Structures are given as C-alpha cells and as structure tokens.
Simulated assay, not measured.
Amino acid sequence: MQVHSLYVYPVKSLAGIQVSSFCIDDFGPAGDRRWMIVDVDRQFVSQRNNPELARIGTRLEAGRVLVNIPGEGEFPLIAGDEDCRVRIWGDWAKAVYGDHDASEALSRYCGATFRFVFMPDESFRRVDASRVTEYRRVSFADGFPFLITSLASLEELNSRLETPVEMRRFRPNIVVEGAAPWDEDEWRALSINGTAFSLVKPCSRCVMTTVDPDHGTKAPDLQPLRELGKFRRTPDGVIFGMNAIHESSGEIRVGSPVAITTTAKTENQ
C-alpha cells in the first residue's frame, strides 16, 4: 500500500488543495484548517448550510493563504490583532479576526455577514477526549487532525452509484491505495514514511458529501450519502474513512509506503 494523494484545507469548508507532500506539525498537516468562517454569533459556518462555499478556491503563496471568491476576486487572508472566541461544534476556541476586505467580499458573495478567523499557535483546542485520552490538540477540523480514506472504498461505492463521485466529496487528508475496499474499518495504527498514526474513530458523514465541489450545489437525490446509508450505517453514523491522530512530526509524500501496524483483530489478541 502507498499514499495515492494528499490534501490540505487552509480554510475550513472552502475548496481544498491537492498537494504532492505536506509537513506535519503539532496541529496536523501544516496549515490545515487554521482559518475558519464565523457568523455574527461567532458560530462556525460550513457547506452544510452554505454549499456555495465549495466554489471559493484557496491557494498558498509564500506562506500566505489566498482565497478566490467568485465575482469578487482574490484576497490574501491576513490575521489582525483583534482577539475573539469562536464556537466550533461544542468547543469555544481562541482566535483572531482576519482583515475586513476578504470578510466583506465573502459576505457579499454569501449574502450574510461572515468573518474570517485564524487560530494562532497559542490557541489550544483539544481532540475529542472520549476517543483520545492524551491531551492532544486539533485545529478547526471537525474533531481530529487527519482523515484517512481508501481509494478502493471509493471505487466500490462508485460501483453502486449511477453517477460516480470524486474523493473531493469526502475531504480527506490522506488517500491510500492498494488496500481492499473497506479494509480501513479494521485499521488501528499505521506508519507512513516513519510517522506513526493512530486511527481513533470511524468518520461519520453528513450532507456535505452531497455538495458538488465544482458548482456549490447539493445533489437533489442526496447521493452519495443516501447510498452509503444503505450499507455503511453503524453506531458511529454513516461512515466513510477513519479519523486519525499523529504520534510524531515529519513529512509524507505521494507514493510514500503505508504499513498497517495494528488492526482491530491484533489489538484484541
């Protein structure tokens, strides 16, 4: 098995970037979801209610994040010095507001008052303590630093769909090839290019998987979520992929070998 593809998402719920490699820092993939969008109540905003966000492109240049907002142009995201506390799911996290120009353009595009916010290094949001006992941090990702998926599982799902979907619908960080479909359900630990990962929770999927990433619209038949619900429904929800934490820093690349070190079976022996 090896790494098929890698993705980073500089801004939560905006378009991701496919990359050939990424470094891993304390948060996870370097720069992943350190930016987020909030409403006037400082609650996070996502494609769940605003599917048009999928059409906002992101780009990295000289250490900066730039966003391309349809009809508005491209803007650098610049962290200001105004602190705030923002809510993501059940967590309140320390952040700083971004500059006004990008936020005002975003608000015009979405037809609502939104702000970009940045998570600074001194902010600490804890990974789900019910799944990870260690005091580990996560950025503005939903709950864990990494989402790992399998190419074979997507291909098997697509064999059931009238219209195949791309892996972009599932917003992974690491896509593995060379495994059998759904083998990842049993993985508990793996190593990629010397970096160890613990797979701590199946990833329950939501309506975001029904958003067309090119057009920013939801599929009227709610595929592929509806099809997954027919055969991938578990106590953790309708699942696709595995949430993971990293045990060290490092760098991984497309083509890096993937070694499974612990499975559910060996863990229970």
Rank of each mutant, 00 (worst) to 15 (best):
V3Q: 00
L6F: 03
Y7F: 15
Y9F: 14
Y9H: 15
V11W: 02
L14Q: 00
G16V: 07
G16L: 05
V19P: 00
V19E: 04
S20L: 09
S20C: 04
S21G: 02
F22H: 05
F22Q: 09
C23V: 03
I24M: 06
D25V: 04
D26I: 09
F27A: 05
A30H: 05
A30L: 09
R34E: 12
M36D: 14
I37L: 14
I37V: 14
D41Q: 12
Q43L: 03
F44A: 06
Q47Y: 03
Q47R: 11
R48W: 02
P51T: 13
L53T: 08
R59G: 08
A62N: 12
G63A: 08
L66V: 11
L66S: 04
I69H: 12
E72G: 06
P76C: 00
L77P: 07
L77N: 00
I78T: 12
I78N: 01
G80M: 07
E82F: 14
E82M: 03
R85W: 06
V86H: 11
G90Q: 13
D91W: 13
A93T: 15
K94G: 13
K94D: 14
D99L: 10
H100V: 13
H100P: 10
A105C: 07
R108I: 05
G111W: 04
G111M: 11
F114K: 01
F116D: 03
F116E: 07
F118D: 08
M119D: 06
M119T: 08
D121K: 10
F124H: 15
V127N: 00
S130C: 08
S130D: 13
V132N: 05
E134L: 12
Y135H: 13
Y135M: 11
R136N: 05
R136G: 08
V138P: 02
V138S: 07
S139Q: 00
A141H: 12
A141K: 02
D142S: 09
L147R: 12
L154Y: 01
L154V: 01
E156I: 06
L157D: 02
N158V: 07
R160H: 12
V165E: 11
R168F: 15
R169K: 10
R169H: 15
P172T: 05
I174H: 05
V175K: 03
V176R: 02
G178S: 02
G178Y: 00
E184N: 10
E184I: 10
D185S: 01
A189N: 02
A189H: 05
S191Y: 07
N193D: 13
R205H: 06
C206S: 14
V207G: 10
M208Y: 14
M208F: 09
T209Q: 09
V211T: 12
D212F: 07
H215Q: 15
G216D: 09
A219W: 02
P224N: 08
L228F: 03
K230T: 15
F231Y: 15
V238M: 06
G241D: 04
N243R: 07
I245M: 11
G250W: 08
G250Q: 10
V254Q: 08
V258Y: 02
I260C: 14
I260L: 14
E267P: 02
N268E: 15
Q269K: 03
Q269A: 14
